[in-house]
Design a protein around this nucleic acid. Sequence first.
DNA 1: TCTGGGGTCCTAGGACCC
DNA 2: TCTGGGGTCCTAGGACCC
Length: 418
Amino acid sequence: MFALVDCNNFYASCEEVFNPSLSQFPLIILSNNDGCIIARSKKAKELGIPMGGPAYMYKDRVERGEIRMLSSNFTLYADMSQRVMQTLESYAPRMEIYSIDEAFFELEELSEEELRNEACRMREKVKKWTGIPVSIGIGPTKTIAKMANELAKKRSELGGVSILISKTAIRAQLEVTEPEEIWGIGHALAERLKANRIYTAAQLIDCDDSFIKKLLGVVGYRTVLELRAVPCFSCSQPIEKRKSIICSRSFKKPITNSSDLENVIATFVSRAAEKLRSQQSRAKFISIVIAPSPFIQPYEGRSCHIDLPNPTAYTPELIRLAKEGLKRIYRPQFAYKKAGVLLGDFCDGSVEQMDWITPPTDTPKKRNLMRTIDRINRRYDKTAVQFAAEGLDNHLRSSQTQVSPRFTTSWKDLLTVS
DNA sequence: TCTGGGGTCCTAGGACCC
DNA sequence: TCTGGGGTCCTAGGACCC
């Protein structure tokens, strides 16, 4: 049996924990540069404010006081997520943290009554310890647990817990579930299904196996099996390392000269390399991406892929290669609106595959240097030690206007209770 | 004027090997 | 008219998730 615990309107709920007055209004949370909407409170969803909508379209209603609007505060959300996950960990040993606000559990085969009691206890404990409301869905596969969770959120009379175990209960829910509501079926596949006159999940699972494989591929087929209560996905083991690391941003103002672009690329490399070292990996390739605004046609994004002679996590070497790559793809006549760096093909930091021609990149001395910089930056501030290549004042300086305090991770932002 | 960031997995096609 | 069979590796692109 699987359970999915999902935080309700997570980012909005994090803000409301520390500023309860916000909950009286529809609340929206904005992306980097306050560009578009990435999260909404329940009230905002009820108003029909769409996910991903551009923020400027709602400025009027914010000014009129109808809607509250905040910049995103990922430091706060990440810390609150950790608190929720820690609280949940005490319940079941087989837990998979699936995203910042969701976790799957593998449960023992208990009666429906026992499962319900257990789930209610979990909900209450998370709410009491962290202030975050969660919904819990339980089913024989992850995909059905996900479906149950949606149900728990939609139907308030269920008290935040929904269990789909019996064949009849599952079937009934499949009958009223549209293809795009299924976990694993996105926009494109849903269109494909509709073109084949499949309008509900029930119709989908009744289809012939070979037809499904042809239409949706093996990935979609697995989803269908899961809907038929045949488990295909289990809870993955914790602390799996990332297979790629991306650092990218859109800029408030487009970048029109190469030295500014070099600076931001160096910053991306530095941040990505820090993440790389924190999971004890080294990268075998680095990719650079630069792109003008996607809203100006034709779209002319360019990228370049550089294989490393020796796998490394040494920031200066990665910056040097990134700059070389940038020179290859940079064209002066463009105004760049977005750029990014991707590190990939990792190997374990403790394994040394020597090259008999090229001298090793990562000497013990260089590793010590990186470790020391990481420690300083962790202890004092992310930007305490930076690389000169990043420049002193680059385009990444935040243009967030409405960011809440870091209530749980910064001493000076600690709330005072009177 | 203003439109996010970070991931995973699979597939098709090309190039190569014997 | 008709031209084998069995592989690997890589890349770009597409699909999905939050």
